[in-house]
Design a protein around this nucleic acid. Structure first.
Length: 611
RNA sequence: GGGGACGUAGCUCAAUUGGUUAGAGUACCGGCCUGUCACGCCGGGGGUUGCGGGUUCAAGUCCCGUCGUCCUCGCCA
């Protein structure tokens, strides 16, 4: 038996290795048959090395793409004319003496080397092959490097890595839980954690004053480009701290992580901005600060003008705001109409536009810009000649949201020509509202979560009424328009926590049943504490230059939460359901019977069929 | 749950107004080639046009339904 274990990898051999005898293992990336001489690009995680196989290697002709092979040979220099400067290993090649095929490959469903990128569906079905592609190797390695650097930073800051349960308790608030039936306790269910929130608070009560964890979190909600049903957070919590302590730790850690993982220098401290200011200036709680296009209040102008739509919005308690696109007067009517579609998607009834000029300008608003009104409007929105001004009049939240989305849209549209600053625009968005009105359920709900401390608690202690003006001690970290994470200073007194549950309409006995253990823990001497969780899928996707977190996750799910490789979720036999005391109904029952029923005689072919 | 886009060879795509035997590149198979690295040259196989129904003399193309993928609104403490 020959020893075919590799002595070197495919990425490390260069001119200094000439003359060395080596054994290489790897995948056949490409092969070129010249009749009598045969070239193979051998690939592993570390690189690609060219093998030269002469007529003495009879197995050479049997090789096909993605076979796994081992070769023994000598590192030799290439002639000057044969050097491949595209590759680090391009100055050498392996003069192969012996070859062993370790494992044959079927014809791959798509090409690992070059070629067009296959459809997402195909890539996910054959994820193990997709992950061989250079871009995916790069993404996955970036993620590993980033998270590893961040772990080291937390360790060095004195944080303690503590695991928390995956099988835990269902929570009434927030996202829909993934449920796990209990076999031992008929009719009872575990839930997968939406986050380790309660456990990390309890760890503070236990005295672990600096906790962190790379935590899997689960939320049974619909997916987006930046949302997967199971995702990963860098979760942390600290005791005896206030907001600035949390910001400071994270700024140090992120500066270090960016430096160690990417060689980039972030500038810290990051900007801080209150939620109200972010909403008023940018129409978003995650503003992208790499470009301007700020929203401007034009109520003063609207009151002076005769434009009924604007005045009507003001009279009914709404707002009139606009933004100015520098040089935007060159946009065609068709292009402007397309912008109106954008704001309408977010509830605006229309988009008023005006090509700014002191002599009255052009567009639907021009006839309301006689005399000084044109100059007044230009001053209010900060417009110059040749700029395009865009306005929405509506309820405040509609005005802000639609213009905020329009701002994002314009910045992304090449023809709008919005100037964008390079680099990383990090900021802390602070003082989120404590509560939000759920109009449908006619009750107040937590904007963040019910354990968040209120900022101005005394103010509303008195009575009920409008709670929307109460600020919380919650904060988000935003970079380049992405919400990367959020956190808050928590309530550390059981009586305050009980009061918040009361406001949220969670009855005392319900609170006791759902969160009693937390309330109890808080009543045994809880330190003031707070924390934060960073979305690792998002931050690594963003720093890898991706616009979808799917490509930074080894085994992601589709928009309908399917794993196309495993084909999960999948039906289970009725017997397995009975064991956990579940009886399916309706369509689920039909599916369960199909799964349980013995296969007809076509069994042989059913192995390859997919549900 | 709603809206939009897409689904044709293993893969990436084309197919005019509904009209000939559904094409190309690549991959695959066979042959040739001793310096290629997107090797080249010659030849070949490969299609339930996602699935089901309908309209029509005729459907990849039009209509209805359905399944899947992607984006998105709602949703996501």
């Amino acid at each position: 038996m020959k020893n075919w274990r590799r002595t070197r990898t495919c990425g490390e051999l260069n001119s200094e290795s000439i003359g060395e005898s080596v054994v290489l293992n790897g995948w056949v990336h490409a092969r070129r048959d010249h009749g009598g001489i045969y070239f193979v690009d051998l690939r592993d995680r570390y690189g690609i090395t060219q093998l030269v196989l002469g007529g003495n290697i009879s197995e050479a002709v049997k090789l096909s793409a993605e076979d796994v092979i081992a070769v023994r040979g000598k590192v030799v220099a290439r002639d000057e004319s044969n050097v491949n400067k595209q590759r680090p290993t391009g100055w050498i090649e392996i003069d192969v003496e012996e070859l062993e095929i370790l494992s044959k490959s079927l014809t791959p469903p798509f090409e690992v080397s070059g070629g067009d990128e296959p459809a997402v569906e195909t890539r996910l079905r054959y994820r193990y092959i997709d992950l061989r592609r250079e871009s995916m190797q790069k993404n996955i390695l970036h993620r590993a490097k980033f998270i590893s650097a961040m772990r080291r930073a937390f360790d060095d800051e004195g944080f303690c890595d503590i695991e928390t349960p995956i099988l835990t308790k269902a929570t009434p608030e927030g996202a829909r839980d993934y449920l796990v039936p209990s076999r031992v306790h008929p009719g009872s269910f575990y839930a997968l954690p939406q986050s380790p929130q309660i456990f990390k608070q309890i760890l503070q009560v236990s005295g672990f004053d600096r906790y962190y964890q790379v935590a899997r979190c689960f939320r049974d909600e619909d997916l987006r480009a930046d949302r997967q049903p199971d995702f990963t957070q860098l979760d942390m919590e600290m005791s005896f701290v206030e907001e600035e302590d949390i910001y400071g730790v994270w700024e140090r850690i992120l500066v270090r992580t960016f430096r160690d993982a990417m060689g980039l220098e972030l500038s810290a401290p990051f900007q801080r901005m209150r939620y109200d200011e972010a909403m008023e200036r940018f129409g978003s709680d995650k503003p992208d600060l790499r470009f301007d296009l700020e929203l401007k209040d034009v109520a003063d102008w609207a009151r002076k003008s005769d434009f009924g739509v604007f005045r009507g919005a003001l009279d009914s308690g709404g707002r009139v705001m606009g933004l100015c696109l520098p040089g935007g007067a060159k946009l065609s009517r068709k292009e402007i109409t397309a912008l109106e579609v954008v704001v309408k998607e977010y509830g605006a009834k229309g988009l008023a536009w005006w090509k700014a000029s002191a002599d009255g300008g052009a567009g639907p608003l021009a006839r309301f810009c006689a005399g000084n009104l044109a100059g007044d409007l230009m001053a209010l929105v900060g417009a110059a000649e040749g700029d395009l001004c865009l306005f929405v009049a509506d309820r405040q939240d509609t005005v802000r949201r639609s213009l905020g989305e329009l701002r994002r849209h314009l910045a992304a549209a090449p023809h709008a020509g919005v100037a964008r600053r390079e680099g990383w625009a990090f900021l802390w968005v602070t003082h989120f509202p404590m509560f939000e009105r759920d109009e449908e359920a006619e009750r107040w709900v937590s904007l963040h979560h019910p354990f968040t401390a209120p900022e101005n608690w005394e103010f509303w202690k008195e009575g009920d009424g409008d709670l929307s003006c109460i600020a919380s001690r919650a904060y988000d970290l935003v970079a380049n328009g992405w919400e990367l994470g959020s956190g808050s200073i928590r309530i550390h007194r059981a009586d305050v926590q009980a009061k918040v549950f009361e406001v949220l309409g969670i009855e005392a006995d319900e609170a006791q049943e759902k969160f009693g253990f937390l309330l109890e823990a808080l009543s045994f001497g809880a330190p003031p504490h707070g924390g934060f969780a960073l979305g690792l899928d998002r931050v690594t996707a963003l720093t890898a230059g991706l616009d979808n977190i799917r490509d930074i996750i080894a085994f992601p799910k589709t928009t309908s939460a399917m794993d196309l490789m495993c084909v999960a979720p999948s039906p289970v036999p009725l017997g397995q359901l009975e064991e956990v005391h579940i009886r399916p109904a309706g369509r689920a029952l039909v599916r369960a019977f199909e799964t349980t029923a013995p296969e007809p005689s076509t069994e042989a072919s059913s192995g390859s069929s997919r549900v």
